[in-house]
Computed example of a mutant assay.
Amino acid sequence: MDKLKQGIEEMQNHNYEEAAKLFTEAIDENPNEPVGYINFGNLLMHMNDNDRAVRFFNRAIEIDKTAATAYYGLGNAYYEQEKYTKAQEQFLLAVKNGLEEADVHFMLGMTFIHQEYVKLALPYLLRAAELAPDDVDVQFQYGLCLAQNGQIDASEKVMNHVLQLEEQHSDAHYNLGVVALHKEDARKALDHFRQALEINPEHMLAAHAKSQVEQALNE
């Protein structure tokens, strides 16, 4: 097994020092190969050393301007630093250079969400949802974005799909409660808020909404 594969295995097993040693040796042996730098960048991300990770991803891009996974890694590093515009630029370059996975579209969508551009986020989250129909986080964020864009029926459908994937998803229940209120079905809303609280008794939004609905029903 080559050193990069060994290093990835060690990283997956949380043996970060051993992984770093193997990646360093791989880079020393092939200094003009971008993959070693990309893997080292990913390792540094796992270790929450985003500043150094940025340097390794940039080095990979210097070597190969078409290294899509280097742009993706760099985007993630900027995202973790809450530099959402910079992250967005890198994710777009990853897509431009051929990366067509759910993760990159999802992260692109999330950069727009953090900048409160919910309309711009929607097509990317839609694409991520198409590519990862069984990913709970992707489906939930897509459903949330639909609601934020006023597409209530579509959001309801996606949130129900989230519950099929994960029955104990308190936030999906909460959002279905909000959808029910939009449709003026207070009792259905109350049921969802109660279920959200059964799953997560600390769900403050659900608790507040439940008390408001109960008060309205009692008047």
Rank of each mutant, 00 (worst) to 15 (best):
A209Y: 11
L43K: 02
L120A: 06
N42P: 10
A77I: 02
E18F: 11
D137G: 14
K3A: 15
Q81N: 06
E9K: 13
E10N: 13
G36T: 02
T24P: 08
N30F: 06
D49N: 08
E25D: 11
L44Y: 01
S155H: 04
K65V: 12
S155L: 12
N218A: 14
Y79A: 13
K96Y: 03
H182V: 15
E33P: 09
Y71R: 01
A216K: 08
E29K: 09
E89K: 02
V136S: 13
L126G: 00
M110G: 04
Q195R: 14
N149F: 07
I8R: 03
K5M: 12
D153M: 11
L146P: 10
Y78E: 03
E116N: 11
Y124V: 09
V54A: 00
P34F: 00
E219Q: 10
I113L: 10
L74K: 01
G150N: 06
G75V: 02
E17C: 08
Q115L: 09
A67T: 02
V213A: 09
G73V: 04
K3C: 14
D153R: 07
Y84G: 08
N39T: 04
S170N: 10
H169A: 13
G36M: 05
P31G: 06
G98E: 00
N32F: 06
N97S: 03
H114M: 14
I8P: 11
H105W: 05
E18W: 04
L120H: 05
N76K: 05
A172F: 08
M47R: 02
Q6P: 13
F23V: 06
A172H: 07
V136A: 07
E62D: 05
E166G: 11
T85Q: 03
T24H: 04
Y174G: 10
A129R: 00
K65C: 11
E18P: 14
A19V: 01
A207N: 12
A147L: 14
E25F: 08
K21F: 13
A20E: 06
G75M: 02
A20N: 06
M47I: 01
D171H: 13
K96N: 04
N50C: 05
F193P: 14
M110N: 08
